[in-house]
């Protein structure tokens, strides 16, 4: 907007501040809750100023399991989540780059059939096919393993489509130049196609990492041993403690820790986005 009226400026700022407050307040409460003991958080109103229990809570959460909820120490759950999230992200990106590459650059029999098969899986996210998928994973003895956590979530029609669109914007002449230069198909993929798509890969990495990190239903199903619990399902378990009282200081501390990796990924990848925007190379 190019309008310059004082009250409009005031109004838009007021809305922005309000928006920030609405978003930031729960996070603020989480941070405050990290610094109090369990008793303080059961009172009404809950404290809004920092307490002195931060190191205590962090220590408890990171290195001691909870007997009430049966969750292992949070560092282990964080590692599990990280392995799963990175596994899903890298797996999805690799698989979809390969399938998009096949669809765009090769003429093979039933190419369109495969294309539509991938398309149809768009309509079948994990939640829809969860029972048969569970059957298969159980049958393959993959319960309570990283493979079982990651593999069923790897196929991605959305990412395949995205890469297909990106690859189609790469001029054919480049492929021909590479062929004349003596590049095999895979060399061309690695040396030309992937570097040219790297900003898209970065964007997708962020989205998929958060998607993977936040997985809840699937880990809940395939993990029965606490050693494979992920942090998101751990938090849920800490809430459902039955008879006893939820330990809010512990839950909030775990929640805060669980927020860190996605934020780090976003910040790290933002650099690449901006770089991608500045030196548009296509």
């Amino acid at each position: 907007m190019v309008e310059r009226r004082p009250y409009l400026t005031f109004l838009s700022h007021a809305f922005l501040v309000l928006g920030v407050a609405v978003v930031a307040f729960p996070i603020y409460v989480t941070v405050i809750a990290m610094t109090h003991g369990p008793q303080a958080l059961l009172q009404v109103p809950i404290p809004l100023l920092p307490g002195d229990q931060l190191w205590n809570n962090l220590n408890e959460v990171l290195f001691v399991g909870r007997s009430t909820s049966g969750t292992p120490p949070t560092w282990l759950m964080m590692v599990n989540s990280l392995v799963m999230a990175i596994g899903i992200t890298v797996g999805k990106i690799v698989i979809s780059i390969l399938s998009a590459f096949a669809i765009v650059y090769f003429r093979f029999p039933f190419r369109m059939l495969f294309f539509w098969m991938i398309f149809i899986t768009l309509m079948l996210p994990v939640e829809v096919r969860i029972l048969p998928t569970f059957e298969v994973v159980a049958g393959l003895n993959l319960l309570n393993s990283y493979t079982g956590l990651i593999l069923p979530l790897i196929a991605s029609a959305t990412a395949t489509f995205l890469f297909r669109q990106v690859f189609m914007t790469i001029p054919d002449e480049l492929m021909e130049a590479a062929r004349i230069d003596g590049a095999s198909a895979m060399r061309f993929l690695v040396d030309v196609v992937v570097p040219m798509s790297r900003t898209n890969i970065a964007a997708l990495f962020v989205i998929l990492f958060i998607f993977g990190w936040n997985q809840y239903l699937w880990p809940l199903l395939v993990t029965t041993e606490s050693d494979f619990y992920t942090v998101v399902m751990g938090i849920q378990r800490m809430l459902r403690v039955g008879e006893s009282v939820p330990e809010w200081n512990i839950i909030m501390t775990t929640t805060f820790l669980a927020m860190i990796p996605p934020v780090v990924v976003v910040i790290a990848m933002q650099g690449l986005f901006v770089k991608g925007l500045i030196d548009a190379e296509k």
């Binding site: 001029p171 002449e173 480049l174 021909e176 130049a177 590479a178 004349i180 040396d191 030309v192 570097p195 040219m196 190379e281 296509k282």
Partner: peptide, 13 residues
């Protein structure tokens, strides 16, 4: 052989 293309087909990256 070596070929020179109309749009040069240089690798942009």
């Amino acid at each position: 052989i070596a070929m020179v293309f109309q749009n040069y087909a240089l690798y942009p990256h």
